[in-house]
Simulated scan of single mutants.
Amino acid sequence: MSFEVLDPGMLTQVQDMGRLGYQHIGVTTGGPMDEHAFLWANRLLNNPLNAPQLEITFGRLSLLAHSDTSIALTGADLGARLNDRPIAPWQTYEIKQGDQLSFSMPVAGLRAYLAVSGGLDVPARLGSAATVSREQLGGLDGTGAKLAKGDRIPLAPPSAVAKASVPYSEIPDYRKPLRVGVIPGYQYRHFPRSARARFFTSEYQVSQNIDRMGYRLSGEAIHGDLDGIISEGIAYGAIQIPTDGQPIVLMKDRQTIGGYPKIGSLSALGAGQLAQRAPGATVSFYLTDVAEAEARRMIFNHRLRQGAPGTTG
């Protein structure tokens, strides 16, 4: 049971929820850039929530099915088609042997998630199949390679899956300007009140310099009273302020330590919404705290457990 890669697209990788417990030796987590979309894809199929799936960035992927299975598609609308039929994200589909699944270019969002009933049958390295190319870990053969033409993606045995879709209230609109909460960081007090006020009242644009390591934003420069700090651990979503004053949001493939001051951090769900924004998108911030971020996560986890129309368990 497998999918054959006819065209790997711009960037398609195997991801699970990430490689946890190794940052102290310099191994980053990896994992899905958008946890919200990733987890819903597995939930639609009643897969284990950590089951490996494909993260498709910018599209152009084309796959040929060599067996019958069921899939769930979530996240960005990349103009997906099943054979000659357009299909929408945030729901499940039956796949028959010989079917061709293809993606064009982004309509809304940047990253789509393709889950398969039972998950992808790929090896774990350091407890995870998450692809981190820089560290040569994860993916189809464990070496961190992105998908290539001719690859065969092994699939776990499928289970019977009812047709299901994500509740409309849980589907983000990636075309809207993003406003996201920031939890103050260790160096927050080293930014004067004027700089903090500028940061929280300004709009920033997503620059062309974005990847799985970080999102560089452009807009009102802010400066603190620290030129640098002793390198320390970096959380997912941390917002570094380099010497030019332009914020950099650290993402899933970030280095594990860094020496730039950090004004704060996005939550995992907030950083995931940023990961769906293309260059030119507008982003603004508001001050929040750990309690609010935890409450939002608890609400999301509760809705995820409730499932979606057609799901069980």
Rank of each mutant, 00 (worst) to 15 (best):
D225P: 07
M1F: 14
Y22G: 13
D77I: 04
E292F: 09
M1Y: 11
G98E: 11
P48F: 03
I71P: 06
R216I: 10
A293T: 12
A197G: 04
I183A: 05
V116E: 02
R196E: 09
T243Y: 13
E294F: 01
A156P: 08
A115C: 01
V27S: 13
T12P: 10
A275N: 04
S70N: 07
E35A: 13
L155W: 00
Q97D: 11
A80P: 02
D173V: 05
R134I: 13
L287I: 13
A295Y: 14
Y174Q: 05
A271L: 04
E4G: 10
G233T: 01
Q208D: 15
L20F: 14
K149V: 14
F200C: 14
R134G: 15
K96I: 03
A80E: 00
G26C: 03
T312D: 13
L49D: 10
A281G: 06
A112P: 00
A108Y: 00
S169W: 11
S62L: 03
V206M: 15
K146G: 12
T74N: 08
E292H: 10
N209A: 15
I229G: 01
N83D: 11
I87H: 03
I257W: 06
I210H: 13
L44I: 02
P184D: 07
L54I: 02
P106C: 10
G313N: 13
P86D: 12
H190A: 14
A268Q: 14
S169P: 04
I25F: 09
A308E: 08
T288R: 06
P158W: 02
P154D: 02
G264D: 01
A76Y: 07
E135I: 07
P32I: 06
Q97R: 10
A37F: 05
K163Y: 14
P192Y: 04
A160W: 00
P247K: 00
P48G: 05
G228S: 12
F3H: 06
L147S: 01
D253P: 08
F58I: 01
T28I: 02
